[in-house]
Amino acid sequence: MRALRRSWLLGMGFACILGAAAVTHAQTRSGADRPGSILMFPKVVRTASRDTIIQITNTGNSINWVHCFYLSAPDGSGYCGATDFELVLTRQQPTQWRVSQGRRVDPSDSFGDPGAGFDPGLIPPVPPGFQGALVCVEVDSNGNPFGQNRLKGEVTVLDDSNGDVAKYNAFAVAALGQGQDNPLNLNDTEYETCPGQLTLNFSPRGSRDPVVEALGNASLNSFISTNLTMLSCNLDLQAGVRSNGTVSFIVYDEFESPFSGSFPYQCWSTIDLGNTPQTTGQFRSVLLPGGAINTIFAQARLTPSGTGLVAVVESAHADQAGVVGTAASNLHTSGSAVGTVRLP
């Protein structure tokens, strides 16, 4: 009888823990507005005219070791490999670098130079033509994952030819304890999960921008387009194995009319919405051939299969002369999906 009572108490205790876990599950803090332990920068570019400035900040009052990975996957070869480097940030230290230049360790940088400040470590430049992502993980002095939730980051993509800038916040995944092991499990036990659903407000491809047409020199024929860049939460940075999946989406225009479809993604993908076979009708204005969206604003809900995704959107507003201004922003998120990041 005593054994039976003990088993009851054990069962109750276990159920309480489960209940508590279910409750805590609802209060995810990962996102683009709070410091975290894994920083994911979905869009980093270095093309002939565009370059990227990375900013990473330690918001804590103790030293923070960071292991970072440039993820390059634009060639469609199936390889999703990474180049890694390490940073050490002192308390509250901000740091920055241009990806085309990287950052040297040079204590003789004079006051006010771009490299002035405590050098966080040797940061390699990315090669010309680079398109990919950056992932940074908090580690301890031995390089083992160590969650402190002290990191935040920003990306500025700038066009050196016309000075255009676009900026977004890195997505920060929070650790749920310290002393994690490799691989990093984004499963609400080691780290919080990734978003299970992404929501995007956008203007369909080919929509006109009334502000450009009313106030600018372009008179008519302005053109809005939207680029979506996605980074999977399933990353094998050790073997460079590509993760594949499908994003199903549903688009609502202002008449509440739904349009749905799907498109594939890899570990890192970027697509011009409304300009691919899978998205032509659903993300394109009726002003263009094949377009179905009859209003100049719409909402899209993206649901990845299998694993979580983080993403950033960049909208481009072109005038009649074809001169483009861009704006980047983080997507809204909901739900949760698991992921795994395997470090070398």
């Binding site: 683009a32 410091p35 935040k152 800038v165 201004g325 704006a327 980047a328 983080n330």
Partner: peptide, 10 residues
Amino acid sequence: SSAAYDLHQQ
């Protein structure tokens, strides 16, 4: 040219 961005919260 400019770009807006949200502040982080703590």
